[in-house]
Amino acid sequence: MNLSVELAPFAYLTEKYKEELAILWIDAHPDIKTAELYPHYHAMVLATLLGEGDPNLASLVPRKVNPSNLLFAGINDEKEKAPSVYEKYKFPNVSSEEFASSSENVLAALRATGASRIAVHFDLDVLDLREFRSQGIAKPERYGEYVSKGLKRSSIQSVTRLIQDVSNEFDIVGLGITEHLPWDALTLSNMLNNLPLLKKH
């Protein structure tokens, strides 16, 4: 699922709960690019929620997300922190290594917002490719390239524990799970389509 689908539900939750809501963005990328930096909207959805970027899209968001109520977890590529929106607000980011064995840094940062309700964005590309490869960047012809980069990513266990720990202390009112792309299933489907008896006519 493309993460741009979160624009409407996260905008709704922000309007409904106002300052009671904080957003936990668990992702390898901050998704706050603007059209000048990147051509694809899926990397701009959070910028739109903040009121940045394209004014026509931002006008669709009745109440903008308070930058102080936004916490990143898992961003693992320094160049992803370079876009002007990220630099403008100096967003905190708890790395995958930091929450690998304990959720405390994330919980402390969420407490500091004063919010009681949390909307969680969970992009599957934060997961270790060797453990979970059904994600967009694991395209078969580039899979080896990405794995060889050795980027520090999160285990399924650590992300699951993190979200459970947040739920134990806060009221999670929204959970988006995005960027699922089952390459192996697509490859198998294509293969079966070329086998006798299974081939489509």
Rank of each mutant, 00 (worst) to 15 (best):
L49E: 00
I23V: 15
K16D: 02
A47T: 12
M44I: 06
F10K: 00
E36R: 08
K18D: 15
A43M: 06
L21R: 01
A47C: 05
P30M: 11
A47W: 05
L24G: 03
Y41T: 15
K16P: 05
K16Y: 07
T34Q: 10
E36H: 05
E15H: 09
M44C: 12
G51A: 09
G51S: 12
M44L: 14
Y41S: 15
W25F: 06
I23P: 01
I32T: 13
A43I: 01
I32M: 15
V45D: 00
V45Y: 03
L49D: 00
Y12G: 00
H40W: 14
A43D: 06
A35G: 12
E36T: 08
Y12D: 07
W25V: 12
L46N: 00
K18I: 02
I26K: 08
Y17L: 12
L21D: 09
T34H: 07
T34P: 13
E36N: 10
A11S: 15
D31I: 03
A35K: 04
F10W: 07
A47E: 11
G51F: 11
L49V: 10
H29A: 14
M44Q: 15
A47Y: 06
H42N: 12
P9M: 05
M44R: 01
Y12M: 09
L49K: 09
L24V: 08
K18C: 10
A11I: 10
L13W: 01
Y17N: 12
A28P: 08
M44T: 04
E20W: 01
K16I: 04
L21K: 04
K16G: 02
E15I: 03
H42V: 11
T14P: 02
I26E: 00
V45M: 06
P30H: 12
D27L: 03
L50A: 12
Y12K: 09
G51E: 11
Y12P: 01
A28Q: 08
D27W: 00
I26H: 02
E20R: 06
T34W: 13
I26R: 00
L49Q: 04
T14Q: 11
T48C: 10
I23Q: 03
L37P: 00
L24T: 08
K16T: 15
A11N: 11
W25D: 07
A11F: 08
K16F: 02
E20T: 04
T34K: 14
Y17D: 06
E20K: 01
